[in-house]
Simulated assay, not measured.
Amino acid sequence: MTVVERPRALADQIRPEPSFGKRVGHYVRRHPGGVLGSTLVLLIVLIAIFANQIAGQDPTALNPAERLAGPSAAHRFGTDNFGRDLFSRTVHGTRISLGVGFGVSLAALLGGIIFGLLAGYYRRLDAPLMRLMDAVMAFPGIILAIGIVAATGQSIANVILALGVVYIPRVARLVRSVVLSVREQAFIEAARAIGVRDWRLLGRHILPSSWSPIIVQGTFVFAEGVLGEATLSFLGVGPPPIYPSWGTILSEARPFIREAPWMMILPGIALTVTVLSLNLMGDGLRDLLDPRLRRRA
């Protein structure tokens, strides 16, 4: 091999970092489930934003004369045991579910990032903070959430608080594992050697290295928050019954499952599609942000 050919052969072996557009195109081809999930999540968000225009009726308007009416032109998916339009209640329930899911995800990420950074960076805080997280995880999640709501009262804010506390340990353990590996790297040691303060190291160097797994975990917590809110509402300890939550609709439909099965169909489908879409989107984001996938693109 000549001197000119050798650098050229070495250059052929070095694969340049693919662009973001190429990675997205590779992701779309290889992971149609992630694309489907993201598209459905976007559609659900639009339904929540334009719920008033889509529903067309007041979800809380009572009409006892049309109690348990089947699907018709006036009520596309029938009415419930109080004569309320089920289609309108399900559409407006999208706002409750997405709002609670987003709030739970935000609360869990905020608390989990703080606990995870402190436990992973400061060795003396690692054991006590992780034992605290283990103690929280020792309780069944739904039982702990019910206890918190029972102690604080029924409201949307308290449901978000209860479910956020349940999911904080999962995020904290994930962040801690990333911080434990990042804090020993050479650039962190160099920054520490020149006198960079701890808070700056955590905020400017260590935390950005954790964003990819945190974002993916956030989508899964979002889905679990939606499902957790529906579970609490079904058990009667979620948001007040005045809010058209999917779990509340399903709970009210349970005694009439034989007489009016349509009361469960639409909210059940909405809950299933929403949770499935968020999980598909999370799987797609995990693959998109995976550096190994980036190298194969």
Score class of each variant (00 low, 15 high):
Ile242Gln: 13
Pro140Phe: 12
Gly21Gln: 04
Ala297Ser: 15
Leu109Gly: 01
Val100Cys: 01
Ala138Asn: 01
Thr39Gln: 01
Thr219Asn: 04
Val178Arg: 11
Arg200Phe: 00
Val275Leu: 11
Ser105Cys: 15
Val136Phe: 07
Gln154Asp: 02
Arg176Pro: 13
Ile142Leu: 15
Ala107Asn: 01
Leu46Ser: 13
Ala65Trp: 01
His31Thr: 13
Arg258Ile: 12
Leu207Phe: 15
Gly153Val: 04
Phe82Pro: 00
His205Val: 09
Arg295Gly: 04
Glu184Val: 13
His205Leu: 10
Leu110Ile: 14
Pro71Ile: 10
Leu46Gln: 09
Gly147Trp: 04
Leu161Lys: 03
Ile146Leu: 07
Val45Asp: 03
Gln57Ile: 02
Gln217Pro: 03
Gly33His: 10
Gly111Ser: 10
Gln57Leu: 14
Ser19Tyr: 13
Arg8Ile: 12
Ala191Trp: 04
Arg29Gly: 15
Ala55Asp: 08
Ile113Pro: 05
Val100Tyr: 01
Ala260Thr: 09
Ser210Leu: 09
Gly34Met: 14
Val182Ala: 02
Arg131Lys: 13
Ile54Glu: 11
Leu109Asp: 02
Ile14Leu: 14
Ser97Gln: 05
Leu288Thr: 12
Val159Lys: 11
Leu86Gly: 05
Ser72Pro: 05
Leu288Asn: 09
Tyr122Val: 14
Val182Gln: 01
Asp80Pro: 05
Leu232Ser: 04
Phe20Trp: 14
Asp58Gly: 13
Phe187Tyr: 15
Gly120Trp: 06
Met281Val: 12
Leu293Met: 15
Arg197Phe: 05
Asp80Ser: 04
Val175Glu: 04
Arg23Lys: 14
Met281Lys: 09
Gly34Thr: 14
